[in-house]
Every structure is written in structure tokens, then in C-alpha cells.
Design a binder for these strands. Structure first.
Lengths: 246, 246
DNA sequence: CGTCTTATTGAAGTGTCTCAAAACGGGTGG
DNA sequence: CCACCCGTTTTGAGACACTTCAATAAGACG
């Protein structure tokens, strides 16, 4: 095996070390044994802070690294010339950003911080190099890309065949489940995005999103106070998704 | 470097060798130099034929390989329990199928042949093994997955913000461009799928798809004879996509 | 040649959008 | 601390694109 001089050197900066990161069970190092993990600490070159409203990268930027969200919250969006705007996803702690850039060496979307955030910068050259040495890392990276594809197909189903209320229900259940996986309450959520951003993600106008929230509140499914959402009846949300009129 | 006894042995079956395949410039081996390519011939374990209407794999099948379309035409679809059905893509020669399965070791969608087809079976274990030895292959594989993500985001834009005619225009232009890349006429296409399958892909009902075809014919943009489509005015199609009322 | 799938076309229905106005809340400066 | 401003959210009424339902036509296939 190749001596990992670079990785060993990186251990001198424990603050960017995957092996000491409390997100490692949600992030790229999933499934990599502890002893190997220490030799992976050189993977993260540095951290980078992005203030609310600022971009981590933009459409057209040369692709050099992928990013793992450490703290904060992002949206990704594509913005064709004609003024349209599609939010393609929301990313929270442990999730990867920038995979879209690998395909042709330039980023294909914008990544915008919805609150002050911090990311781990993982240079793609490092990632490929280390993937060759650590099959577990290679595997996990492939899994993350594959799951992104599967997730996107789920969104296509949502956009292609669901009505407004079902879309919002799916969105809220997904958010709830991801918060739960991070140790937060699945029933009390604070939305980081505006109604318009939700709408642009779900293929709806902001007024429609707002109306759906109101409807859910009338029906006793949610308590809505601005961006503070309490899920009162998660089963009702789930039923809404399952009992759709195919 | 590890001696590639397996790959060398595979050269005994030239019929499944990437190095002799006329699709190699469109498929996984893109960008791999000729001398390396010969040592990659062990990547394809075998070929497999799939008759029209039959599935290459189904949702839930254990994931073992990805597939490169050699001849024929496929659709992929996800089928939730509730009877809904979303076509997530159409695949033609040189394109990869099965990437959805990497994420959790089982396929997440069905792949259905729309005509009698043949695929190259690329065992995932081979692919990962060879990726470690051939950085060019690793890179190309990443690119293919990344482009699939970018493509899906484009479909999300389509489903989230375009009207019926724009969706069909995007669909036809995409098909046209892919046919052109394979040496076929970009203006004379024979659709392999029904109006319903197009509709399920584009988030429209089959009647709407049919009406759009009729409209395009009235406007002199297309000549439509069943599944034989002639693009009379490609610029008009392009304008329809660009001049959308964002 | 008959049957079944696929495609076309029409008329009525409905979900979402558009346009518009008002309420709310967070931040800033007086 | 209050007044003000501006972005966000809510709510209503009317318009419109697409769907639904239904009937017919055209091909494909045995």
C-alpha cells in the first residue's frame, strides 16, 4: 500500500478530520472502519464558510471539489437564460454538494446558502486518488451519486403525477425524516426556505403552496406559524401520499 | 501494475470486447487510450438479449451489474404501489442502465425493452476493480453518473415549469440530438414509445401529447404519421423552448 | 379478416395560475 | 421605543391549461 504522507500530515488539523467529525455516520465516510478512517483525514482540504444568501458555487464555475455540508442549509437551483428557475434540492448537514460538476468539469447549477453555513471542501483529485486506495470510500461515493439519481427520480414522480397537496406532503415528510436522522424532532420543523423556494422546488406557485399550508392547518394536520411548522398528524400526511388517485 | 489475466483471457471473445465495439466513443470507454482499452476487455462479462416488452431488471432485483445498451431501446420507470407510473428515461445505444441500483444494492426501477434489444453486462465488481486500475475509467464512470444527475435536473425543470408544447419540444430536440450523435438523421425519427409512454415521461396525459403533435403538424413544425416524425422546422422547436414566458 | 392496441378529436370539468390587495413580521433609523 | 419600510405570506376572484370522459379512427398482429 502507498504510504499516506499527505493524509498523515492532515492529522495535524484535527478540526477538519473526518475521523473526529460527529457527522461521519451521515456523510461520505459511512461504512469505513475507524482504523482506515484516520488515514482518510487528508481528504478534506479545508473548510469554507458561506453567508446566508451567498453562493458556494455557481453555474459555469470550474469544477474542482465536492462539498459536504457541515452546518447550515443550502438550496441548489438551475437557472436557464429565459428567467425560469428550478430549485433542484435542499441540502442539510452531512449531504454532498457539487456532484453535478463532474460531468463536464463545470458546475451545472448554483448552490445558495439559506442560512450562514459551513462546508468541508473535498478536492475531487483527492477523492479519486483516495477512492483508488480505499474501496470502502469508492463504494460510498458511488452510493451517494446513485442515491441522488434515485432521489431525483422520486422528484420526477412528484412533479409528473402528484397534485399540490400531495407534493407538499411528500416534501414535509422527507424533511421531517431527514431532521429525525440528525437527532432533531421530526414533528417540529423550522423551514429555512420561503414559500416561493418551496414552490419552485415542487413545481407550484408560491400562492398555491401557501394555500396548501392553510388547508393542512384547517384540517388539523399541521400547525403553521410562518416558517414554524408542527406536524400534528403525520399519518394523515402519509395517507395523502399513499391514497393518491393513481 | 497488476497483471490482467482475466482481461487478457476475455480477448478470446472478441464479440464482447469494448476495444472492437463501434459504440466505444459513446459508451463507458470514452477517453480511454487504445492501448489501455484492450486491457479493459474483461469488463463486459457477457451480452444479454431482451425481447420487446420484457424487462432487463425490475424494482427490487438485487443489484449486480450495470448494463450498456448495444442495440435496441429501453425505458426506465418507477412504479409506486398506488398504481402511479413515472417513466424516468429512455435509453438508446451506448447509454448505461442500472445506476439506480448501486445506492442500496437493489434496483429502484424497472428497465423495459421497447424493442428487441441487446445489452452488455458489466458486473459492478469488475467495474469497481478496473476503476481502481484505470483512472480514465473511474473518471468516465463518474462523469456518466454526474451527467445522469444533470439530465434529471433538466427533466425537473421541464416538469416543474414548462407547458405541454414546450415539454414535447424539449423531448423531440433531445431525441433528435441523440440520434444525430449516433449517425442517424436528426430530422426523421421513428418513435419507439407510445403516446402514453411519452406522456408519462413528460408529466402529461396521452391525449395532451397527441394534441400537441397535431398542433405542431398544423403549424408546419412537424410532419406526423403515427410514430414517424419528421422535423420540418427545428428552429421553431428551439424557439418554443427559449422564448418561454419564464 | 377480425380483434386489440394505439392514436385522434371533441366537449365539459377542475386544479392551478394570474392578478390584486391586504396583513404580517423583521429590521432599520429616527 | 416607536414608526416606517420592505420582503414574505395570506386570501380572494377570475382566467386558462390540462384533464377527464367519450366516441371514433387507424394500425398492428395473429
Amino acid at each position: 500500500m502507498i504510504p499516506l504522507t499527505d493524509a498523515c500530515a492532515a492529522q495535524a488539523k484535527p478540526n477538519v478530520a473526518c475521523s473526529h467529525c460527529n457527522l461521519r455516520e451521515l456523510c461520505l465516510p459511512v461504512g469505513i472502519p475507524d482504523d482506515e478512517l484516520q488515514r482518510l483525514d487528508g481528504m478534506v482540504a479545508t473548510r469554507r464558510s458561506v453567508r446566508r444568501g451567498h453562493t458556494l458555487f455557481r453555474h459555469g464555475d470550474p469544477f474542482e471539489a465536492v462539498y459536504a455540508v457541515r452546518t447550515g442549509f443550502f438550496k441548489t437551483r438551475i437557472t436557464p437564460e429565459d428567467g425560469r428557475d428550478q430549485v433542484t434540492g435542499f441540502q442539510m448537514a452531512g449531504e454532498l454538494l457539487g456532484l453535478d460538476g463532474i460531468g463536464n468539469d463545470h458546475h451545472a447549477c448554483d448552490a445558495v446558502a439559506l442560512e450562514d453555513s459551513q462546508v468541508c471542501v473535498i478536492p475531487y483529485s483527492q477523492l479519486t486518488q483516495l477512492s483508488r486506495e480505499f474501496p470502502g470510500l469508492q463504494r460510498q461515493f458511488h452510493k451517494i451519486m446513485s442515491r441522488e439519481i434515485v432521489r431525483d427520480h422520486g422528484v420526477m414522480l412528484l412533479l409528473g403525477s402528484m397534485r399540490a397537496e400531495e407534493r407538499l406532503a411528500v416534501f414535509l415528510l422527507n424533511l421531517s425524516q431527514r431532521l429525525k436522522a440528525r437527532g432533531f424532532s421530526p414533528s417540529s420543523l423550522v423551514l429555512r426556505m420561503t414559500r416561493e423556494e418551496i414552490g419552485t422546488y415542487l413545481g407550484l406557485k408560491l400562492e398555491t403552496v401557501s394555500r396548501c399550508f392553510s388547508k393542512f392547518q384547517e384540517d388539523g394536520v399541521l400547525a403553521v406559524r410562518q416558517r414554524q411548522i408542527d406536524v400534528l398528524d403525520p399519518e394523515a400526511l402519509q395517507r395523502l401520499v399513499n391514497n393518491a388517485h393513481g
